[in-house]
């Protein structure tokens, strides 16, 4: 039985993953902004067999509040051994280009708040010499593309940060798992036309769970994105700049 903290618990991917853990009998501490939605998910997880679900309302951008949240999680679950960081917003690239303020806010939500949380969690897990930290990054972080390079660069920061953190914590027996989903059919992507490359949150949830059990380092979700991104990364800049990806 694990003691799991989930940040961004109302995201579709986090919810799908939490159901797997609930059915397995793990204890969960759910963090998100919207109390109503959070309680609805907590009720669902209880019915599905979760022996203990606690909820906590917090905006991840409220960095000052992180310590209190972590203390509450460790107190209410009597310790923590697993963390999933899943919060984020899909930035509107066009709007960001017109607004420095929006750009900064998107970077804060998708990168800085994650790094702030990881800094605190890493120190605690390093001390207890055990634990698994999974962070949802994105294939968008593998290469900047004009259609969403703001979101992409925030995720690139997360990917790079977790890579370094993984090395540092390896010595302490703590594993850091970087998840890179491709297109996922969630409310966040409701406006997109769906095609063959799209995956359901349930599929991504199963991949996350498996990757955490196996203590994988970097996982593309689903696997075929590794090949797609490998090709995209190989395109020389002189050609890439002319493409409309």
């Amino acid at each position: 039985m694990k003691k799991i903290l989930i940040i961004g618990a109302t995201s579709a991917i986090a919810e799908a993953t939490a159901r797997i853990w609930a059915q397995r009998g793990d204890q969960l501490f759910l963090v998100a902004r919207n109390k109503e939605k959070l309680e609805a998910i907590a009720d669902d997880l209880r019915v599905r067999g979760c022996p203990k679900v606690e909820t906590y309302c917090m905006d991840a951008n409220d960095v000052e509040g992180h310590v209190a949240m972590l203390d509450a999680a460790e107190h209410l679950l009597s310790g923590l051994d697993t963390v999933l960081i899943a919060h984020g917003t899909l930035s509107d690239q066009q709007a960001c280009q017109q607004s420095v303020e929006l750009t900064m806010r998107e970077i804060t939500t998708n990168a800085l708040s994650v790094i702030a949380l990881l800094t605190l969690i890493a120190n605690r897990f390093e001390l207890q010499k055990t634990g698994t930290i999974a962070v949802i990054s994105s294939v968008a972080g593998d290469r900047g593309r004009q259609s969403n390079y703001l979101y992409g660069s925030a995720k690139a920061m997360v990917t790079t940060f977790t890579s370094g953190l993984r090395q540092r914590l390896f010595k302490s027996g703590v594993s850091v798992v970087t998840i890179k989903p491709g297109f996922v059919d969630t409310p966040m992507t409701a406006e997109f036309k769906k095609g063959l490359l799209w995956a359901s949150p349930e599929t991504i949830g199963r991949i996350i769970d498996k990757a955490m059990l196996r203590k994988c380092a970097v996982v593309y979700a689903p696997w075929f994105w590794m090949w797609i991104m490998m090709i995209i990364k190989m395109i020389p800049e002189c050609i890439f700049k002319k493409l409309s990806l």
Binding site: A12, E36, K37, A40, P187, A190, E191, F192, K193, K194
Partner: peptide, 25 residues
């Protein structure tokens, strides 16, 4: 967004606007 929706009989296939209802609130 629009999506091509069908029913179990697969006689009709209709391009319809789709709204995902994600929360009962």
């Amino acid at each position: 967004p629009t999506q091509s929706l069908t029913s179990w009989g697969r006689v009709l296939r209709i391009e319809q606007k789709v709204l995902t209802f994600a929360s009962r609130f």
